[in-house]
Design a protein around this nucleic acid. Structure first.
Lengths: 175, 175
DNA sequence: CGTGAATATTCAAAATATGAATATTCAACG
DNA sequence: CGTTGAATATTCATATTTTGAATATTCACG
């Protein structure tokens, strides 16, 4: 029975490598300390992701031999990895179900890495939300069946809540 | 790259078999027509689920030979299957991320099968939501870090929206 | 008579997730 | 001291899920 956690994470490992090169175990600790509240990633899963990223040429590893320990691989971003990450960071998430994970992760990196462009992303994300709300309303008006309307109303409510949250999250960080 | 759909569905196939026995393809059509808007289930995935349910003894199949076609398997609920389904139906969902799918499905079956007990389920679900909100507020008060607070506020907003929706969804169905 | 859609199911393969296995160091406990 | 358990670090085999292709028949359309 598979855990009901959010699907595979976005280029988050790339983001964690933006600050500096790290090896797998270190990434895991850092991840759990910060983004771990948003979703779970097992240690061996993390290594698997890392391998995929390496195959895709987005990260590269340097073996670091250690006296009397198995050598560890220190991963760093390739230029392409950096590009992919920065590109991902700017994109609003098109679906509600990804917001919990994707949007949170983006927000985290904007703050953590002190990158510019957060207000623009939020503005774009709000636009996406408004479009979704309109769409749900239109579909609800056309809907011939009660259940469909209920589903659409549920979703609209969720997106509206996200929109309100987006409005607040540009306010001064200290509260 | 895996599709970002909601995790594996709850005992929904059991629910579809409550009305009457059906074979796989028929279930798929019925599913897509109704609950298909809530999440996606591929045809071969559905057959896989069916197989699991059969192994678990919750459904049983009867081969129905057809002239000049491959025989089809008509599935029906076993008494245990029926029990499991009815038990599942009464339970509120403990996590926000399951609401989109689980709660919607339950609601659908309550209406579709004309079963009693919906107001009780909704009351219990609201209780769960209120408890979650309190928890988020408590954690946010304790939180030492901004990002954590933002995440918790996002979640609280989502649960509050769900709560408001639950309030409305007992109103007369016709609107 | 060929083409594509609908009916119906199975199977192999790819992608993901889980958990165990391996190996070393260090601190604490009695 | 010896050993037990936690922390460091990574790999691998297996289980589970998902996808897509393969198979086979009928029917409607032009």
């Amino acid at each position: 029975m598979r855990q009901d956690s959010a699907a595979l994470p976005p280029p988050v490992l790339l983001g964690l490598l933006m600050a500096r090169p790290r090896h797998g175990y270190e990434l895991c600790k850092e991840f759990n300390r910060t983004l771990g509240q948003v979703w779970r990633l097992g240690l061996s899963q993390l290594y698997a992701q890392l391998k995929q990223l390496e195959d895709a040429g987005l990260v590269a590893a340097q073996e670091e031999p250690q006296p009397s320990r198995p050598p560890r691989k220190v991963y760093h971003l390739t230029p392409e990895g950096r590009e992919v990450f920065l590109e991902w960071l700017q994109q609003p998430t098109p679906y509600l179900r990804q917001m919990r994970v994707d949007l949170m992760a983006r927000l985290y990196f904007f703050r953590e890495l002190g990158l510019p462009g957060l207000p623009e992303l939020i503005a774009r994300q709000k636009e996406v939300c408004r479009a979704q709300i309109e769409r749900f309303e239109r579909l609800a008006a056309e809907a011939d069946d009660d259940f469909r309307r209920l589903v659409l109303e549920f979703r609209r409510g969720q997106v509206e809540a996200a929109l309100r949250w987006l409005d607040r999250c540009l306010e001064p960080v200290g509260g």
